[in-house]
């Protein structure tokens, strides 16, 4: 029961989606619309589960006074800082309108934190690449050169130092050529591989061959 019902559910909804693609008529088109809405609703509950679990873990840590429990207070505070204004003081459905309390927190707390956090990746990537990019092999050298040309070609100094070269051979143009041709070829090989991989994995899931998502018999 614990594994059979979910397996049948997976197979049924998977088949409905595949059939409606080839037979886009009633009842399959109606079922597809319905299932898509259901999926979005369940997705939202899944995100809620993540947020509530974060709260549960944080509150548990505060209660037990676990390691660095003080920071869990900040996490719970951050959650409430945006959730309470969002639900009660931001005009309901128009919660994202400029000037609402939710928008204020979003613009002045969430945006600077997320932008800086992602910007920091530039440093982490640079330090990791310093170790990985040492041109030890032919392949590593190609990777290094492509990265170097694309990075330099994307800033004005790239064209400044190659101004003496004829039109079409300056760094920005070489970077564009790399992005449009060799990069495109590699991307396509990867995308085709991913596409075929997803098709086979989906088929395994729908047919019940792949069952890892159902967990063990607990």
């Amino acid at each position: 029961m614990r594994r059979e019902i979910p397996m049948i559910l997976t197979g049924f909804v998977g088949f409905v989606y595949i059939i409606q693609f080839f037979v886009p008529h009633a009842p399959f088109d109606i079922m597809e619309g319905l299932l898509t809405d259901w999926m979005l609703i369940i997705f939202a509950f899944a995100i809620w589960l993540g947020a509530l679990n974060l709260l549960k873990v944080s509150l548990d840590k505060i209660y037990r006074k676990g390691k660095d429990w003080q920071y869990s207070i900040v996490t719970v505070f951050g959650f409430l800082l945006i959730a309470i204004p969002g639900f009660f003081f931001s005009g309901g459905r128009r919660f994202q309108d400029p000037g609402t309390a939710f928008d204020y927190i979003y613009q002045n707390v969430y945006t600077p934190l997320s932008a800086t956090m992602f910007a920091m990746l530039a440093f982490f990537v640079a330090s990791a690449s310093y170790r990985a990019f040492r041109a030890r092999t032919k392949e590593a050298t190609m990777l290094l050169l492509a990265a170097f040309v694309v990075m330099l070609g994307r800033v004005p100094v790239g064209d400044m130092i190659t101004q003496w070269l004829p039109e079409g051979y300056r760094l920005s143009q070489v970077a564009d050529w790399i992005m449009n041709y060799p990069n495109m070829a590699g991307q396509r090989a990867i995308m085709i591989g991913i596409g075929l991989g997803i098709v086979s994995t989906s088929l395994r899931l729908i047919l019940g061959i792949e069952r890892s998502h159902l967990g063990g018999e607990e």
Binding site: L54, T75, F77, L81, A83, V109, L113
Partner: peptide, 8 residues
């Protein structure tokens, strides 16, 4: 704070 605000 970022983790909490993102979840919220």
């Amino acid at each position: 704070l970022f983790v909490g605000v993102s979840a919220g």
